[in-house]
Structures are given as structure tokens and as C-alpha cells.
Simulated scan of single mutants.
Amino acid sequence: MTIHKEGYTTIALSLLFIFVLNAIIDYRFADVTWLRWAVYIASFALFITVLQFFRNPSRPFVTGGNLIICPADGKVVVIEETQENEYFKDKRLQVSIFMSPVNVHINRNPIAGVVKFFKYHPGKYLAAWNPKSSTENERTTVVVEHANGTPVLFRQIAGALARRIVWYVKEGDVVEQSKEFGFIKFGSRVDIFLPVGTKVNLELNQVVKGGITVLGELA
């Protein structure tokens, strides 16, 4: 397991904060043993939490044919037909994966193909499970066209804690399945919009792994 590049600055700032905090506690409360140890333990817990959030575990990524691979780690919170109004402007099958702060937050391409559309939207920071977060929160929209001509839309959505969405793709890029297309810092969500009638292998509340769990299959 390695640390993702998006975590370097945050980890460095966390270490600086921990160092300064512990130095102040040692200087001002040298005789209060219980307080010093409480701060030591809390500092260690904070550092481990930040470290695990930016972990980048080694995985045997899944690829192949018309398979659709889950774009993120987390729990499936939505599987339903809905109106997609930004790009398709018609009915689509929406699958949403909620990422808690303890999940790996790397986002991966669910299919291989060509990026036909990309747009970043500044916005609010509603809780990621709020239905309005799909249209009102900070988010990105990516549409990749598969080799068989089927376009798939996936959307990074910031949550109540997330304050930065990172993306690595642009229109015209040729992307590989299960390779990174972005990263969201702290709790968040990824939506994927598929043609109505697409075979989906997931169930609500199922825990999935990005780049590994097979979401479904394109017709």
C-alpha cells in the first residue's frame, strides 16, 4: 500500500499542526501528565486517520469487454431510473455510491473509451446522501463513449465534509478502464448514469470496491 499523491500536502500540514500542538502542551502543561498523554493519543489518532484516508492500496483491477466497473469504494445508496438533464436530457438508470471518510477516495473509470464531455460545477456542500446534492453541490460531470458507441456519464459529487474535487481527464482523452480519473477529499459520492435497461449486478446497501466490483454490463 502507498500514499496517494493528493495526500502529501494534507499529511505535511497535519504533521506540522501535531508538532506545534504537542510543543505547546509540553511547554505550558509540563506537570499535567494526564493532559499531555491525552493530547499525544489524540494526535496519533488524528495522524492515522489522515494517513488511512489517503491510502492507495494495491489491487488486482478488473477490466474487460462490455463490463462496467464500480468507479469508487463505498456503499450503493441509489439504483433507480431518473431524469438526467445536464447531458442526455432523458431517462437514465442511476447508480450512486456513497464514500464515507474511511473509504479509499480514488475515483476510477468504469469503462474504457473516449471522453466526450467534461464540466466542473462549483456549488454547495449538502450531505452526500441528499438527493439535491447531484444538482446543487460542487461536482464534475464526465461522459465517456465506449467502443460500442454507448456513452456513460459519471459524476463526482462533494459532500458536507469534502472541499476539493480533483480530476485528471479532459474532453478528447482516451481513458483506460479502472485507471484513475479523479479524487475527492473526505466524504462524498459518485453517480453513474447508464442506458435504461442496463443489466446491473448490484443491490442497495451493497459494499463495493472501485476498480474491482463489477457494477453491470453494457448491452
Results as ranks from 00 to 15, higher is better:
residue 158 A to S: 05
residue 99 M to N: 04
residue 42 A to D: 05
residue 122 P to W: 07
residue 43 S to G: 14
residue 94 Q to N: 13
residue 148 N to V: 01
residue 119 K to V: 13
residue 118 F to L: 01
residue 156 Q to A: 09
residue 134 S to N: 12
residue 167 W to K: 13
residue 97 I to M: 00
residue 40 Y to D: 13
residue 36 R to V: 12
residue 47 F to R: 06
residue 183 F to I: 09
residue 78 V to C: 02
residue 89 K to F: 07
residue 79 I to C: 00
residue 80 E to V: 09
residue 185 K to I: 13
residue 73 D to H: 01
residue 209 K to V: 10
residue 59 R to D: 04
residue 126 L to P: 02
residue 174 V to H: 12
residue 54 F to L: 04
residue 111 I to T: 02
residue 52 Q to R: 12
residue 57 P to H: 01
residue 28 R to G: 07
residue 212 I to H: 02
residue 139 R to E: 05
residue 215 L to S: 07
residue 214 V to I: 12
residue 172 G to N: 08
residue 133 S to M: 07
residue 75 K to S: 11
residue 217 E to Y: 02
residue 14 S to Y: 01
residue 90 D to R: 15
residue 165 I to Y: 03
residue 21 L to Q: 06
residue 142 V to N: 09
residue 80 E to A: 14
residue 44 F to G: 11
residue 64 G to H: 03
residue 30 A to T: 14
residue 66 N to H: 06
residue 96 S to M: 00
residue 72 A to M: 03
residue 27 Y to C: 09
residue 168 Y to P: 07
residue 159 G to S: 01
residue 115 V to G: 01
residue 33 T to C: 13
residue 100 S to I: 11
residue 51 L to F: 14
residue 184 I to S: 03
residue 93 L to P: 03
residue 214 V to G: 03
residue 148 N to W: 00
residue 9 T to W: 15
residue 112 A to H: 03
residue 190 V to E: 10
residue 218 L to H: 02
residue 171 E to A: 07
residue 96 S to E: 00
residue 42 A to W: 10
residue 188 S to C: 04
residue 140 T to I: 11
residue 132 K to F: 11
residue 12 A to K: 13
residue 50 V to H: 08
residue 166 V to R: 13
residue 112 A to G: 05
residue 156 Q to V: 05
residue 149 G to V: 00
residue 28 R to I: 09
residue 89 K to S: 14
residue 192 I to W: 04
residue 35 L to N: 07
residue 190 V to C: 09
residue 141 T to L: 13
residue 67 L to Y: 04
residue 10 T to W: 06
residue 72 A to K: 02
residue 9 T to F: 15
residue 68 I to K: 05
residue 14 S to Q: 03
residue 91 K to C: 09
residue 24 I to W: 12
residue 149 G to Q: 00
residue 46 L to P: 10
residue 62 V to C: 05
residue 33 T to V: 14
residue 114 V to K: 11
residue 84 E to M: 04
residue 199 K to Q: 14
residue 68 I to N: 04
residue 168 Y to I: 15
residue 80 E to F: 05
residue 60 P to H: 06
residue 180 E to D: 09
residue 76 V to G: 03
residue 23 A to P: 07
residue 34 W to N: 10
residue 211 G to Q: 01
residue 51 L to S: 05
residue 203 E to I: 08
residue 124 K to L: 13
residue 123 G to W: 03
residue 8 Y to G: 12
residue 157 I to E: 04
residue 80 E to D: 14
residue 98 F to H: 11
residue 25 I to V: 15
residue 110 P to Q: 03
residue 21 L to I: 15
residue 40 Y to F: 11
residue 147 A to D: 12
residue 152 V to D: 01
residue 55 R to T: 00
residue 74 G to E: 06
residue 35 L to C: 08
residue 174 V to Q: 14
residue 120 Y to R: 13
residue 117 F to Q: 07
residue 77 V to L: 07
residue 34 W to L: 12
residue 23 A to M: 15
residue 179 K to M: 08
residue 169 V to E: 07
residue 122 P to H: 08
residue 88 F to K: 06
residue 45 A to Y: 11
residue 123 G to D: 02
residue 29 F to I: 14
residue 144 V to Y: 00
residue 124 K to F: 08
residue 189 R to K: 12
residue 82 T to I: 05
residue 54 F to P: 03
residue 125 Y to Q: 08
residue 186 F to A: 15
residue 148 N to I: 00
residue 215 L to H: 10
residue 52 Q to H: 07
residue 100 S to R: 10
residue 22 N to T: 15
residue 52 Q to E: 15
residue 124 K to Y: 06
residue 31 D to C: 10
residue 197 G to C: 01
residue 31 D to R: 09
residue 41 I to E: 01
residue 120 Y to M: 10
residue 3 I to C: 04
